[in-house]
Design a binder for these strands. Structure first.
Lengths: 330, 330
DNA sequence: CTGTTAGCGCATTCAA
DNA sequence: TTGAATGCGCTAACAG
């Protein structure tokens, strides 16, 4: 591999001069610059970013830890991150935990070893051990989707979005509303449940335990959850007339089951989700959902991290706006 | 930042010894090892991968260039790649071109600058300029989804999958089949069209130009394409009874339009796609599609690249099997 | 405007 | 079993 030394010799200048033309820094005579550029062109020389990083202490790499890349949420966030980071010449080192929480910790260490300039953590929990590790590695870090005290973050307004969605359903005359949530260690998504419960309470509407189920983040579990809800509530004869699922995928799974059972959406049961997945509008019926602007979240997180790394002004916590998308599934 | 030198001093040994315990190489007395490990633990020392790379000429990073992360195809491939690479301690540097072809070239250079050990290119074209650049940078590289002579690759059997799908439709009595393709520079997807045309020809079935349209890789353009096909063919009174779209998303867009027009699927028009997207089975009606096993493609590509990098046996070209998934949309 | 020098953090001879 | 010395490829004073 050809190095800066080779270029220097071939162009009959010193390595410093080559470095100068490489980085456009300091004075270089037109003559010298030309010679150097010519040699670089001829040899197809590409400087080693590693050697450079070793000197400058900047890698221009940011690590992105995520639970899975196979959701629209994650991929949109990553797209947003990429847009902003690439503007400044940062590249993304991907750390996919595949929903394995221990790996979240491992990757934090690993990214430190890689000397990334910063880390974006698309987290699924807010356990104390996580905060501990974050402090230990001492690398600029921003969380997306979850929030911990003392850590920069970009989050969604899950709570109010959920209240508003619930309110919308109530306005439409629904009094028995079912809810499919997820594991409670996900605090952010937990706020969707809280918002739902509060809004119901605010309207003096009771929520039966029979209407509350949990799924994981796939379509199939939406299917399973609504099945349980129906069987739970059939005995009490209090069958819900509406359903809120914390993700579009859960909602899709639920709708699929309902259709198979001959239960019409929205006539027999209104259904709404969260996430504004691309597919939502093409479903039959089109799905009511909440747009959390994931791509924008990614962009904001990138900007926030960049500002921090460059010690510019940066906000500690950013809470993004949401947008209710009402469609005919309710 | 604490370095190997600090550790050496604190443990009262030389840097070489620290290096030895770090890499488990050479002889180290139990006593010395203990002291070093203790200090490492206390100081939370993490060795710099950059300095290490500079010496060893190995970065343990592979670059992945892709057109967009926001498709199931890409994200599944990346998941597959991640699985295999992480087993060997390789990390993934993500290079998202956002469908910008010039960036494909730029990233090839950039990854060279980063001294990645290898590159996975999820390509959308096979232009000569691309091959030129690949040869120029001279970094181990494997393509996924497309194939060029002299470049390692993992591809799908687009051609036969398409023929088989077409054949299935013909068996079901369809004689007028429409086809939504994409830009022809995508050779791989182009084979799906070729397979379709060949199978039709093999059955002496004519294909009207009016039934051939193109979309891009989103749902909306499926919508638009089928609209055109219908208006094209209405005049000739040869309205197709079936439709093949080269991706599930195109098919979904088409179905959405058909439903709005009161055209029933599959009674009035059978519809099939490619890609086996997760959503396909939950559609109404469930979509017939072709599973190309993208995650496996990612795994295979990773294995292939790793073998090449370690100069083990590796196959030049891998063609993956497909699986036809027949559902009630046809 | 340019070259000399030093050193980033580490692995790897070579001697001891 | 250990340490001293060297250099990976580059940037950044500093002196000229």
């Amino acid at each position: 591999m050809v190095t800066i030394k080779d270029i220097a010799e071939m162009a009959k200048v010193s390595r410093s001069t080559v470095s100068r033309v490489l980085n456009n820094s300091g004075y270089v005579s037109e003559d010298a610059r030309m010679r150097v550029e010519k040699v670089i062109e001829e040899t197809k020389y590409t400087p080693s970013q590693h050697a450079k990083s070793l000197r400058t202490k900047k890698t221009k790499i940011v690590g992105v830890i995520l639970p899975t890349i196979q959701t629209e949420t994650s991929s949109k966030i990553v797209t947003g991150l990429g847009k902003e980071f690439s503007k400044l010449g940062y590249e993304i080192l991907l750390a996919n935990t595949n929903l394995n929480r221990e790996k979240e910790m491992e990757y934090l260490d690993l990214l430190k070893v890689r000397r990334v300039d910063g880390i974006v953590l698309i987290a699924t929990n807010t356990e104390p051990k996580l905060l501990e590790k974050i402090n230990e590695i001492n690398v600029p870090l921003v969380m997306v989707g979850q929030s911990i005290d003392g850590v920069m973050s970009v989050t969604y307004d899950d709570y109010h979005a959920s209240r508003e969605l619930t309110s919308l359903l109530i306005d439409k005359g629904h009094e028995r509303i079912a809810f499919i949530g997820v594991d409670e260690t996900d605090q952010a998504v937990g706020m969707r449940k809280k918002g739902f419960l509060h809004e119901m309470a605010a309207h003096q509407l009771e929520v039966s335990e029979a209407w509350l189920e949990k799924g994981i983040f796939d379509i199939e579990s939406g299917h399973v959850a609504i099945e349980k809800i129906l069987s739970n509530s059939r005995s009490s004869n209090k069958i819900p007339t509406a359903l809120i699922a914390v993700t579009d995928r859960l909602a899709i799974g639920a709708i699929s089951y309902l259709k198979k059972q001959g239960i019409h959406v929205p006539e027999d049961m209104a259904v709404a989700g969260f996430g504004a997945s691309e597919i939502a509008q093409y479903l039959d019926p089109p799905l009511t959902t909440v747009d959390f602007q994931n791509e924008k979240a990614g962009e904001q997180a990138a900007i926030q991290l960049i500002n921090y790394m460059h010690s510019k002004n940066h906000s500690e916590k950013i809470v993004l706006d949401y947008r209710l998308i009402e469609r005919t599934s309710i």
